[in-house]
Simulated assay, not measured.
Amino acid sequence: MSDPVLALDGVQKTYNQGRENEVAVLKGVDLSLAPGEVVALVAPSGAGKSTLLHIAGLLDTADAGSVRIGGQEMTRLSDRKRTAARRRDVGFVYQFHHLLPEFTALENVVLPQLANGVARGAAEARAETLLATVGLQGRAGHRPGALSGGEQQRVAFCRALANAPRLLLADEPTGNLDPATSDTVFEALMHLVRETGLSALIATHNLELAARMDRQLRMTDGHLDPA
């Protein structure tokens, strides 16, 4: 039986907000994400879902507990090794696309690969394939300002998967879009995830979108439970 792509065990996180004012955001979170599984993380604003995603994606550290990606313990790695693991294993998508405005859609997907040591020809070929997968083959030469909001977010999905991570973490990836565009963009995301076979943890307020994933988890009072 293969290792979970992501495994959290007893993860805790507390923030200090002034003298004698501590806020416990995560109170012992356990989570196991199987290869190829797409899981919805449902939680209201302020419940700690972004904190959880940042810890799972090695952007932040837990106060207690462990984080394993692909069976490898990440908790006690040096900053350099954590950064390398994040670049290799994790892709991020946020509510806002954060594309580089001076570069084309294709270039936005190529650049992370060049930073990871991929040759330009191979990087451009992969970028073209990813953009075609989400129906943007005819928009590859356009800069973000010439793309619609839904198109920009689809480029952001491709950029997150440019280096072929094993894990995708998405924080309200359709939250900035109107309902019709949100549905189209979500379908593109799911198609991309299924085509590449990676695992995904997707935070969303949208219960209809959550119901279309493999499993739903709800964050309540610092814990995760089946939704």
Score class of each variant (00 low, 15 high):
residue 50 S to F: 03
residue 52 L to N: 03
residue 53 L to Y: 00
residue 54 H to Q: 01
residue 54 H to W: 00
residue 56 A to W: 02
residue 56 A to R: 01
residue 61 T to V: 14
residue 62 A to P: 04
residue 63 D to V: 10
residue 63 D to G: 13
residue 63 D to W: 14
residue 64 A to L: 08
residue 67 V to T: 04
residue 68 R to D: 04
residue 69 I to F: 01
residue 72 Q to V: 15
residue 74 M to R: 09
residue 76 R to W: 06
residue 76 R to P: 01
residue 78 S to C: 11
residue 79 D to S: 13
residue 80 R to L: 12
residue 84 A to E: 15
residue 85 A to F: 04
residue 86 R to S: 08
residue 89 D to V: 01
residue 91 G to E: 00
residue 92 F to K: 00
residue 94 Y to G: 01
residue 94 Y to I: 06
residue 95 Q to C: 02
residue 96 F to H: 11
residue 97 H to E: 04
residue 98 H to M: 02
residue 98 H to D: 05
residue 98 H to Y: 13
residue 102 E to F: 15
residue 103 F to Q: 10
residue 103 F to R: 14
residue 105 A to M: 10
residue 106 L to S: 10
residue 108 N to W: 11
residue 110 V to Q: 05
residue 113 Q to I: 09
residue 115 A to P: 02
residue 115 A to Y: 15
residue 117 G to C: 12
residue 118 V to G: 05
residue 119 A to V: 15
residue 120 R to K: 11
residue 121 G to C: 05
residue 123 A to W: 10
residue 123 A to G: 06
residue 126 R to C: 00
residue 126 R to K: 09
residue 129 T to Y: 01
residue 129 T to M: 03
residue 131 L to A: 00
residue 132 A to S: 11
residue 134 V to H: 01
residue 136 L to V: 12
residue 137 Q to T: 15
residue 139 R to A: 13
residue 139 R to Y: 13
residue 140 A to T: 04
residue 142 H to V: 08
residue 143 R to W: 09
residue 147 L to T: 02
residue 150 G to Y: 02
residue 150 G to E: 00
residue 152 Q to I: 01
residue 153 Q to E: 06
residue 154 R to H: 02
residue 155 V to S: 03
residue 156 A to C: 07
residue 157 F to A: 00
residue 158 C to F: 02
residue 159 R to E: 01
residue 163 N to I: 09
residue 163 N to R: 12
residue 164 A to I: 05
residue 165 P to H: 12
residue 165 P to C: 06
residue 166 R to S: 15
residue 167 L to N: 10
residue 168 L to V: 02
residue 170 A to P: 09
residue 171 D to F: 12
residue 172 E to W: 09
residue 172 E to C: 07
residue 173 P to M: 09
residue 173 P to H: 07
residue 174 T to G: 02
residue 175 G to T: 12
residue 177 L to H: 11
residue 179 P to N: 13
residue 180 A to N: 12
residue 183 D to M: 02
residue 184 T to Q: 14
residue 184 T to C: 10
residue 185 V to M: 15
residue 185 V to C: 11
residue 185 V to F: 10
residue 189 L to R: 14
